Computed example of a mutant assay.
Amino acid sequence: MSDIFLLIIAGFGAGIVNALAGGGTFLTFPALVFIGIPPVAANATSAVAVFPGYLAAALGFREEISAIPRSDLLRACLASLLGGLVGGLLLLVSSNEIFALLVPFLLLIATLAFAFQNFIQKALSQSGVRIASYGWIGLMAVSIYGGYFNGGLGIVLLALYALWGMKDLNQMNGLKNAMSFVISAISVATFAIAGIVHWPEALIMALAAIAGGFAGARLAKVLPTIFVRGFVILMGFGMAFVFFGRLMA
Rank of each mutant, 00 (worst) to 15 (best):
Thr111Gly: 07
Phe99Asp: 05
Val17Leu: 09
Leu112Tyr: 09
Gly15Asp: 00
Gly88Phe: 14
Gly238Gln: 01
Lys221Asp: 15
Phe244Val: 13
Thr190Ile: 05
Leu158Val: 06
Leu139Tyr: 00
Gly15Trp: 02
Leu163Phe: 02
Ser133Arg: 11
Glu201Ala: 02
Ser125Pro: 14
Ile155Gly: 11
Gln171Met: 10
Ile193Tyr: 08
Val33Cys: 07
Gly128Ala: 12
Gly212Glu: 08
Val182Pro: 12
Gly23Tyr: 05
Leu112Arg: 12
Ala21Glu: 10
Val156Thr: 15
Ala215Phe: 10
Ile109Arg: 08
Arg218Leu: 15
Ala162Gly: 14
Ala67Glu: 07
Ala202Gly: 12
Ser184Asn: 13
Ala211Asp: 08
Ile196Trp: 01
Gly165Trp: 05
Val197Leu: 07
Val40Cys: 12
Gly146Arg: 13
Asn173Ile: 05
Leu7Tyr: 01
Ile183Ala: 02
Ala113Met: 12
Ala220Phe: 04
Val222Ala: 12
Tyr161Asn: 06
Leu7Arg: 06
Ile196Cys: 10
Leu219Phe: 04
Ala123Met: 08
Phe231Val: 11
Asp3Phe: 01
Ala159Pro: 15
Asn170Leu: 02
Asp72Phe: 06
Gly53Met: 14
Phe12Cys: 03
Ala217Cys: 00
Phe114Thr: 03
Phe241Thr: 15
Met205Asp: 01
Phe51Gln: 10
Ser143Leu: 02
Phe119Val: 02
Ser95Tyr: 00
Ala132Ser: 05
Ala58Trp: 00
Gly11Thr: 05
Ala215His: 10
Ala206Ile: 03
Ala209Gly: 01
Val93Glu: 00
Tyr161Gln: 13
Ile186Asn: 10
Met248Trp: 15
Phe105Val: 10
Pro104Val: 07
Pro39Lys: 08
Lys122Tyr: 00
Asp72Trp: 00
Leu223Gly: 12
Leu78His: 09
Leu20Ala: 10
Met239Leu: 15
Ala10Ile: 12
Met248Tyr: 13
Thr45Cys: 03
Leu160Ser: 04
Gly154Val: 03
